[in-house]
């Protein structure tokens, strides 16, 4: 009920988080959008963390190699898997949104979604296996 506006006042926007992420009764594309936004936030945080971690390289071999050792810890690898999922999903859905959003193939946006996300999932599984075995 919280997203209904019992008022005759001009439209009052509701909490955006609910609007973006409440996917109950919504279609596949809203789910895709919500996931895209979620992965976007994750990847943005990661990008800047990644950039700052790289500064360890300038400080010399010790700091970097101790970081590499830490990064090989299974818990860290698990985070890598989560990251990988974010990357491949955001990539696949991003390609769809970019194409469809420019009016390319928008009539078949659902097929595009399933094909691209399908490919992404395969890449994800392969990548995840590689992360743990590689």
């Amino acid at each position: 009920m919280d997203d209904i506006q019992p008022t005759t006042d001009p439209v009052r926007p509701k909490a955006p988080l609910r609007s973006w992420f409440d996917v109950r009764g919504r279609s596949m594309s809203t789910l895709a959008f919500a996931l895209n936004r979620l992965t976007a936030v994750g990847l943005t945080i990661y990008l800047f963390l990644h950039l700052s971690v790289l500064s360890l390289l300038v400080r010399g071999p010790e700091s970097w190699d101790s970081f590499v050792a830490l990064a090989k810890h299974p818990l860290f690898l698990l985070l890598d898997v989560v990251l990988l999922f974010g990357v491949v999903y955001h990539m696949a859905n991003g390609i769809r949104v970019a194409l469809v959003g420019m009016g390319v193939g928008h009539a078949r946006h659902k097929t595009l979604f399933y094909v691209l996300v399908g490919i992404a999932l395969v890449l994800f599984v392969v990548g995840a296996v590689l992360i743990f075995t590689g």
Partner: peptide
Amino acid sequence: CHVAYECNEACPSGVFPGDKIMSLRRE
């Protein structure tokens, strides 16, 4: 538009606004 296509799903009259928004963007 963030391409959630809920408008297309909801349209009862065959307008499919989502497709038309994308056509505007193509133009």
